[in-house]
Simulated assay, not measured.
Amino acid sequence: MDYTSPGERVLRGILIALVLIFFLFPIFWIFLMSFQTNAQILRIPPSLFFTPTLDNYVSLITGELKSSAGVLKLNFMNNLWNSFILSVSSVIISLFLGVPAAYAFARYKFRFSEDIAFTLLSFKFAPPLLVLLPLTMYFQAIGLANTYIGLIWIYQLITLPLILWIVRGYFEDISPDIENAYRIAGFSWARMFFKISIPLAMPGIAAAGLLSFIFAWNNFVFALVLASADKQPVTVGALAFVTASGIQYGQIAAAVVLSIAPTLALALFAQRYLVEGLSLGAVKG
């Protein structure tokens, strides 16, 4: 039962509305910018009323940006496809490796287990510039520079530690008695793992996979240095809109809308798993 007074409920509603406006207004403004020309965007004072245009989206889809300097070729749709390949592949591989590892760290205590787990987590904390130079030299030496395989491998530094620690905390919240009862019934460890442990930990696995996908999608530094234009994701491809004739703000806004659409749709679709997984599993790990 809610014992708050009407005035408190009104005040709480106003505060929530202000917070939503504060965080959502930049996204709303970028969405409006994507339907405006540069002249409309740069006018002073700015206005919410304008004649919308789809030229920015047409330029991204067709790959041709018309400016005062001529027609500039864009690879944005290819960059979007690269982001999808790199993010999905890295998350799938990290789930394949990280979920069993998380279960091992949660259920079995062996020598240096915490040290190993913390070392893996430190890959997430380390600044990319710390390892960028040796990685570049190493990848050039073994022929992995400017390849999807090399980039996906590097993206494991982002996705694997996150999956490992979130899923580990969720496995620790599952009672071992449930698994032991299944083993006593005569089933193998593998069957117990896939029939009992994985389904019970699915909200945490889904949350970890979603967050890892978002972090991988938003990566910038590794792809900027280790990949050329044909392998770069949208975070790097957006630099093409900074041209000699000026900054194409409308195309940048349209690119932002298209680039956040997949992660936003995925977050809305899996929000139940995200909230449940983070509230139960991650806080304990």
Results as ranks from 00 to 15, higher is better:
Phe23Val: 14
Leu266His: 11
Gly285Ser: 13
Leu120Lys: 06
Ser59Ile: 09
Asn79His: 06
Val225Asp: 04
Val236Trp: 00
Leu24Ile: 11
Ile205Met: 09
Ile149Ser: 00
Tyr273Thr: 09
Trp217Asp: 06
Ile196Pro: 09
Ser34Leu: 04
Ala201Asp: 05
Phe105Pro: 11
Asn75Leu: 10
Asn75Gln: 09
Trp165Glu: 07
Leu280Cys: 05
Leu274Gln: 03
Ile260Glu: 08
Lys109Val: 10
Leu157Asp: 00
Met33Tyr: 05
Ser90Trp: 00
Phe112Trp: 12
Phe105Ile: 14
Ala185Tyr: 01
Phe220Ile: 06
Ala141Leu: 12
Gln251Glu: 15
Trp29Tyr: 14
Ser67Thr: 15
Pro161Ala: 04
Ser47Trp: 01
Ser245Asp: 11
Ala282Leu: 12
Tyr57Cys: 09
Ser245Pro: 08
Lys195Gly: 15
Val19Pro: 01
Gly70Pro: 09
Tyr182Gly: 03
Gly277Phe: 03
Gly204Leu: 06
Ile166Asn: 10
Phe49Trp: 03
Ala17Gly: 06
Leu15Trp: 07
Glu179Ser: 10
Gln40Glu: 15
Lys195Pro: 01
Thr243Pro: 03
Phe222Lys: 01
Ile27Ala: 14
Ala261Ser: 14
Gly13Asp: 08
Ser245Arg: 04
Arg107Met: 12
Ser87Asp: 09
Val225Tyr: 02
Ala69His: 04
Val58Thr: 14
Trp189Leu: 14
Phe105Val: 15
Thr136Leu: 12
Pro100Asp: 08
Pro127Val: 10
Leu239Ser: 11
Leu164Thr: 09
Asp2Pro: 07
Leu74Ser: 15
Gly246Ile: 07
Val19Gln: 05
Leu266Asn: 13
Phe28Asp: 08
Val242Pro: 05
Ser188Asn: 09
Ile27Lys: 05
Val234Arg: 01
Arg12Trp: 07
Asn146Tyr: 00
Gly204Val: 07
Ser68Ala: 15
